[in-house]
Simulated scan of single mutants.
Amino acid sequence: MLPEACREPLLGMYYLATLPGRRQAAARRAIEGSAPIRTLFYHRVADDHPNGWTISTERFKDQIEWIQERYEIITLIEAQRRIGSDQNSTAAVCLTFDDGYADNCREALPWLLDKQIPFTYFVSTNRVNTGEPFDHDVEAGQPLAPNSIEEIRVLAEAGVEIGAHTRSHADCGKIDNEDELYDEIVGSKRDLEAMIHRPVRYFAFPFGLEENLSRAAFRTAFRAGFWGVCSAYGGYNLPGEDPFHIQRIHGDSSWARFCNWLTVDPRKLRNVQRFNAGDYRLCF
């Protein structure tokens, strides 16, 4: 495998070489009503303790402004409406955050709120309730602070869609016991609803790759009354697909990857298959 220092320039060259064709394809999809909904996920926006799940404040703002110039930024509810309607002619993006880092409240989230840019904020409730850092941060030697209860309440009162991300940041793909799945998925919903006194309508799978999902988890989330669930292994959401499952793409700090994914990489459009969640709607 090529080192990162070599891959990024090559990806940038690929992006520029294929950009004329992408623009033509985007125009054709707009006419056909088959424009995909892109849904991004971020974790932590901060300028200290950089790691693979942190993006700098400046780069984050640059990305959002780049998106605003090219796409409509919409809520998850609106995204589901367009996916379920079989027609979408307007290029659109949804913004989401996972985990719940206190650093996001320093600058990134107030900046989004000030600009009236919608976003959904998924949090793992045990971390919010206890203030204990995530295991992956402890293992990396960077025990970063999670959001506090008061911060989540303030965000909810400001109109932010607060979503569930399990209680313990659990890998749902590894949980075979449906009672344990219920505790993680439904328990996090109830924790948040008690915290913010509002309905919690969306759930995001921790880690979010295909191996971190399961049919049982889809059934549990659907039975719990969630309006939708989010994965994080790439892919675009096309009109006519199942609006309950929203596929997401990482808000990568690499400009080459970010631009390549947002302008619809034809390889990703062809090769990323939707997770086979089974007949979870027939679970009653």
Rank of each mutant, 00 (worst) to 15 (best):
S89N: 12
R257Y: 13
Y182E: 13
D114R: 15
S85F: 08
R38N: 13
F284P: 14
T166I: 01
F275W: 06
A224P: 09
N212A: 10
V186I: 13
H43K: 07
Y202F: 10
T130F: 00
E211C: 06
T125E: 00
F134R: 00
D47G: 12
G228R: 04
L269Q: 15
R82I: 03
N104A: 07
R81K: 15
A256F: 14
C94W: 00
V93M: 08
G208K: 02
I162L: 01
S85G: 08
T57G: 13
L269C: 10
D252W: 09
T90K: 14
W255R: 14
D252P: 00
D135S: 12
C283L: 14
R281I: 11
Y236P: 03
L11S: 03
F218T: 03
E78N: 04
V93F: 08
E157L: 09
L144G: 00
P20H: 05
F119I: 01
C105V: 03
C259S: 09
Q273R: 15
A277W: 01
W53H: 15
N147F: 02
D135M: 12
E58C: 11
G278C: 05
V264C: 13
I55E: 01
P266E: 09
Y121S: 03
V229T: 08
A145G: 01
A164F: 00
Y182V: 09
I249L: 11
K189M: 06
W227M: 14
F134D: 00
S168Y: 08
D252E: 12
T18G: 10
T75S: 12
D279L: 12
L2W: 13
E69L: 12
L10Y: 06
D176M: 08
I196T: 06
K174V: 13
G131R: 00
A26F: 05
L181I: 06
I196S: 03
E184Q: 12
P133C: 05
A194G: 15
I55K: 04
V138E: 08
N126Q: 12
L109T: 05
G235H: 02
R81A: 13
L40Y: 11
L282N: 15
Y233V: 07
T96W: 09
R248P: 04
V45I: 15
T39G: 06
E150D: 13
R29P: 06
T263H: 07
L16W: 07
D191A: 02
H250W: 14
H49D: 13
Q273M: 11
F203P: 05
L112A: 04
V186E: 11
G235F: 00
K61F: 10
A30T: 11
G225K: 10
T18D: 07
E107N: 10
L10H: 09
R81Y: 05
H43Y: 04
P146G: 08
F41V: 04
R106H: 10
T39S: 14
Q68G: 08
L95W: 00
F244M: 06
N88A: 09
G225Q: 11
G21S: 11
P36Y: 07
G84K: 11
T75G: 06
D171P: 00
S124G: 08
N126V: 04
K189C: 01
A140N: 07
K268V: 14
V123Y: 07
G225C: 07
